[in-house]
Computed example of a mutant assay.
Amino acid sequence: MSNPMHEVLKHWKAAFDGHQPDIMADLFTPDTLFQGFGPVVLSGRDAVRGYYEAVPGDRSADVTILHTYTIGEQVVGGFADVTFRDTAGWEAAVHMSLVLVRDGSSWRIRQYHVSRVTTEH
Protein backbone atom coordinates (compact mmCIF):
# COMPACT_ATOMS: atom_id res chain seq x y z
CA MET A 1 0.00 0.00 0.00
CA SER A 2 1.41 3.41 -0.90
CA ASN A 3 1.12 5.95 1.88
CA PRO A 4 -1.73 8.43 1.17
CA MET A 5 -0.19 11.18 3.32
CA HIS A 6 1.24 12.91 0.25
CA GLU A 7 -2.14 13.11 -1.50
CA VAL A 8 -4.03 14.28 1.60
CA LEU A 9 -1.49 17.00 2.35
CA LYS A 10 -1.54 18.10 -1.30
CA HIS A 11 -5.32 18.65 -0.97
CA TRP A 12 -4.92 20.23 2.47
CA LYS A 13 -2.35 22.74 1.13
CA ALA A 14 -4.49 23.63 -1.90
CA ALA A 15 -7.55 24.23 0.29
CA PHE A 16 -5.54 26.19 2.88
CA ASP A 17 -3.83 28.37 0.26
CA GLY A 18 -7.19 28.94 -1.43
CA HIS A 19 -8.90 29.79 1.88
CA GLN A 20 -11.61 27.14 1.38
CA PRO A 21 -12.82 26.20 4.89
CA ASP A 22 -15.58 23.87 3.65
CA ILE A 23 -13.12 21.84 1.60
CA MET A 24 -10.68 21.88 4.53
CA ALA A 25 -13.35 20.53 6.88
CA ASP A 26 -14.23 17.74 4.45
CA LEU A 27 -10.65 16.45 4.67
CA PHE A 28 -11.29 15.57 8.34
CA THR A 29 -13.39 12.81 9.92
CA PRO A 30 -16.67 13.83 11.59
CA ASP A 31 -15.12 13.05 15.00
CA THR A 32 -11.66 14.46 14.33
CA LEU A 33 -9.40 15.77 17.10
CA PHE A 34 -7.68 19.00 16.10
CA GLN A 35 -4.95 20.99 17.86
CA GLY A 36 -4.01 24.11 15.94
CA PHE A 37 -2.37 27.30 17.22
CA GLY A 38 -4.96 27.82 19.94
CA PRO A 39 -4.80 26.34 23.45
CA VAL A 40 -8.02 24.32 23.07
CA VAL A 41 -8.29 20.90 21.43
CA LEU A 42 -11.17 21.03 18.96
CA SER A 43 -13.40 18.13 17.98
CA GLY A 44 -15.44 17.60 14.84
CA ARG A 45 -15.68 19.01 11.33
CA ASP A 46 -17.75 22.04 12.34
CA ALA A 47 -15.03 23.12 14.77
CA VAL A 48 -12.37 22.61 12.10
CA ARG A 49 -14.41 24.66 9.61
CA GLY A 50 -14.74 27.46 12.17
CA TYR A 51 -11.02 27.38 12.86
CA TYR A 52 -10.12 27.74 9.18
CA GLU A 53 -12.81 30.38 8.58
CA ALA A 54 -10.96 32.55 11.12
CA VAL A 55 -7.60 32.22 9.30
CA PRO A 56 -6.84 35.35 7.24
CA GLY A 57 -7.33 34.74 3.53
CA ASP A 58 -3.83 35.85 2.52
CA ARG A 59 -2.06 33.00 4.32
CA SER A 60 -0.35 30.12 2.58
CA ALA A 61 1.51 27.01 3.71
CA ASP A 62 4.70 25.32 2.54
CA VAL A 63 4.70 21.63 3.46
CA THR A 64 7.63 19.20 3.68
CA ILE A 65 6.74 15.64 4.64
CA LEU A 66 9.38 14.18 6.93
CA HIS A 67 8.14 10.69 7.79
CA THR A 68 5.16 8.44 7.13
CA TYR A 69 4.08 5.12 8.60
CA THR A 70 1.27 2.62 8.23
CA ILE A 71 -0.73 0.66 10.78
CA GLY A 72 -2.45 -2.08 8.84
CA GLU A 73 -4.67 -1.20 5.90
CA GLN A 74 -6.88 1.39 7.60
CA VAL A 75 -4.56 3.80 9.43
CA VAL A 76 -1.55 5.84 8.39
CA GLY A 77 0.33 8.63 10.06
CA GLY A 78 3.14 11.00 9.53
CA PHE A 79 5.07 14.11 10.38
CA ALA A 80 5.72 17.24 8.35
CA ASP A 81 7.35 20.62 8.69
CA VAL A 82 5.03 23.43 7.66
CA THR A 83 5.76 27.12 7.31
CA PHE A 84 2.73 29.40 7.29
CA ARG A 85 3.15 32.83 5.66
CA ASP A 86 1.11 35.88 4.76
CA THR A 87 1.62 38.71 2.29
CA ALA A 88 2.72 41.15 5.01
CA GLY A 89 5.77 39.05 5.95
CA TRP A 90 4.34 37.15 8.95
CA GLU A 91 5.75 33.64 9.19
CA ALA A 92 5.28 30.71 11.56
CA ALA A 93 7.13 27.40 11.35
CA VAL A 94 5.43 24.36 12.88
CA HIS A 95 5.86 20.64 13.24
CA MET A 96 2.69 18.85 12.13
CA SER A 97 1.60 15.35 13.01
CA LEU A 98 -1.36 13.62 11.40
CA VAL A 99 -3.22 10.35 11.72
CA LEU A 100 -5.33 9.39 8.72
CA VAL A 101 -8.05 6.74 8.51
CA ARG A 102 -9.56 5.08 5.47
CA ASP A 103 -13.11 6.23 4.75
CA GLY A 104 -14.33 4.01 1.90
CA SER A 105 -12.04 4.81 -1.01
CA SER A 106 -10.85 8.08 0.58
CA TRP A 107 -8.55 8.98 3.44
CA ARG A 108 -9.51 11.54 6.08
CA ILE A 109 -7.59 13.25 8.88
CA ARG A 110 -8.58 11.75 12.24
CA GLN A 111 -6.02 13.57 14.36
CA TYR A 112 -4.18 16.82 13.61
CA HIS A 113 -1.60 18.52 15.78
CA VAL A 114 0.79 21.40 15.18
CA SER A 115 3.42 22.81 17.50
CA ARG A 116 5.36 25.99 16.82
CA VAL A 117 9.04 25.73 16.17
CA THR A 118 10.92 28.20 18.36
CA THR A 119 14.45 28.64 19.59
CA GLU A 120 13.21 29.24 23.14
CA HIS A 121 13.10 26.43 25.69
Rank of each mutant, 00 (worst) to 15 (best):
G57D: 03
V94P: 13
N3H: 11
L66R: 09
V8P: 00
D81K: 13
M96V: 10
F28A: 00
V76M: 06
A25K: 13
R59P: 06
V41P: 09
L27H: 01
V101S: 01
G36K: 02
H95I: 01
H19F: 04
F28R: 06
T119Y: 14
W12N: 01
F34Q: 00
R49N: 12
V8H: 02
S97D: 14
D31M: 10
A15L: 10
D86Y: 05
E91D: 07
W107C: 04
W90Y: 12
L9S: 04
F37K: 13
D31T: 08
L98C: 06
T83I: 09
V63G: 00
P30C: 09
D46E: 10
N3I: 00
Y51T: 06
V75I: 14
I23K: 07
A61Q: 04
V82R: 01
R102S: 06
L66T: 10
P56T: 00
V8C: 03
V63N: 01
T29H: 09
V63F: 03
A93C: 12
L33V: 03
D62A: 11
S106K: 15
S115M: 07
V82F: 11
A47T: 01
P56E: 01
D22N: 12
T64S: 10
H121P: 12
A80K: 00
G77V: 04
S2R: 13
P39D: 07
R45S: 04
A54M: 13
V41C: 13
Y69A: 08
I23T: 15
F84V: 02
E73M: 05
E53C: 13
F28H: 03
Y69F: 12
V48W: 01
A47F: 04
S115I: 00
P21K: 08
D26Y: 02
K13G: 03
G57Q: 06
A80M: 03
L27D: 00
V117C: 14
D17G: 10
V63T: 12
V48H: 07
Q111H: 11
D86M: 05
R116P: 11
